[in-house]
Design a protein around this nucleic acid. Sequence first.
RNA 1: GGCCCGUUCGUCUAGUGGCCUAGGAUGCAGCCCUCUCAAGGCUGAGAUCAGCGGUUCGAAUCCGCUACGGGCUACCA
Length: 480
Amino acid sequence: MTVRVRFAPSPTGSLHIGSVRTTLYNYFFARRDRGTLILRIEDTDQDRLVEGAVDSIYDGLRWMGVSWDEGPREGGPHAPYIQSERLPRYQRGAQELVDKGAAYFCFCSKERLAAIRAQQAAAKQITRYDRHCRNIPPAEAAERAKNESHVVRLKVPDSGTIGVDDLVFGRVEWPIETIEDQVILKSDGFPTYHLAVVIDDHEMGITQIFRGEDWLPSTPKHLLIYQAFGWAVPPIAHFPNVLGPDGKKLAKRHGATKVEQFRADGYLPEAMVNYLALIGWAPGTEEEIFSMDDLVAKWRIDQVQKAGGKWDKDRLDWFNGVWIRKLSVAQLIERLEPFVPKAWDRAMLAKAVPLIHERMRTLVEARDQLDFLFNDVSPDPALVVQENDRAKSIRVLARAEAALRALPTFDTTGIKAAIEAIAAELGWKVRPVTLVIRAAITGRRVGPPLYESIELLGKEKSLARLASAQDLLGEGPRNA
RNA sequence: GGCCCGUUCGUCUAGUGGCCUAGGAUGCAGCCCUCUCAAGGCUGAGAUCAGCGGUUCGAAUCCGCUACGGGCUACCA
């Protein structure tokens, strides 16, 4: 049987990093088996729809490098792939269960439900529906349903045990009496999630159900629905949650959680995929740098962890650095394009990028690191003065200006020799000398290699910066 | 409250009864390289494997209990 798996996000906001991890695992599994991936939009809660969320899902997934075969915009044999466009199927399904006596109409108001819940909670009892409408004669209920607002609830058995052999968590069982007569069709005619997934997964021929750990507790509800329909339950696996540093489910307050945010913050999709895959899965070897293709080849469901994994930004940053370094200079320049001002000269940029290639953890850093090549700098005098010796620092600047001006060829070799000569002459180590000059040239204490930077900046600008730094130091003390 | 799940260095993890005086990575510290910062190389600190009790010649690995953490408990997904 060919593998058919699905990812089923809700369009309730932009793509969350946790659901991306689940999606990735689905993807690895399906692609390895040359299976089919299905994107299904689960929008059965009309109140929580967010404008543009489907676009965000598409953009985010594509950016990550995930592809799929059937979906809302791709079509496929089971179209439509948006649940709100599949309403008749759910309504038919619910009616089928009512007809079978496996479900019933419930006319209880939300107020009544809230009241019994409050009452049960106060009495420290299990809060669940009291089955008030379960015994209305079917004919009477059907008649009332024509005019009265109602939902459809599943008739849950009184007792027994129901369980699943989860591919990750193993055997998990629930006492049936802890499960209430759940609503499967809402009063607005929309299905609840539980009915919709079961029907869709069945109709779309889903061969493995992979989803986040959050869903484990509602699995018995789904099992009961499968049972009511008389359908076979496909293999199910739940993947552990991605947690915030505090151990709770990753959420906004923990920082960035949206794919688009990471993209904007200068992360590479390769790094995201690599890092995310390794939360909850490990190959059992000591390798840890994996491309998407590597993961498709190596990921195995029996190596998936049960425990949730905490988000570790430092580790992500490290992966990002690794993947940036794996890029060719040409590729890096391409990736940098959205992060660098339009006004910057691209020829200069191309020459500068090699200097910072292995100094970046995120793409956004390039702008700061290279700014001095494109814009004037205004160094902090405290940065220019080294060894607490203002006079000598000024002399360094003066000598550097003169030496660079006299250079026959303005290149790294000549610049290096000139600066080292100044150090020797003034009796300073090279380090403080370069620090003075670096501050004057770049306005900073750290940055790309100095000699190369000076060469790139060019003679004219370099001399000007050396001169203005002298002015800065010369006037400083009298005014201070 | 009820149901369910989880628990190995700060973090991601390796480990499926003896190879574990618990390995790797990240982060941290130090050293080397070096014009700064990175990158790279080396070294180090860091986990009595949540605790307790069992099973066994032998347990991080099997069983039980406890603790702690988390998820779910809606006409949300």
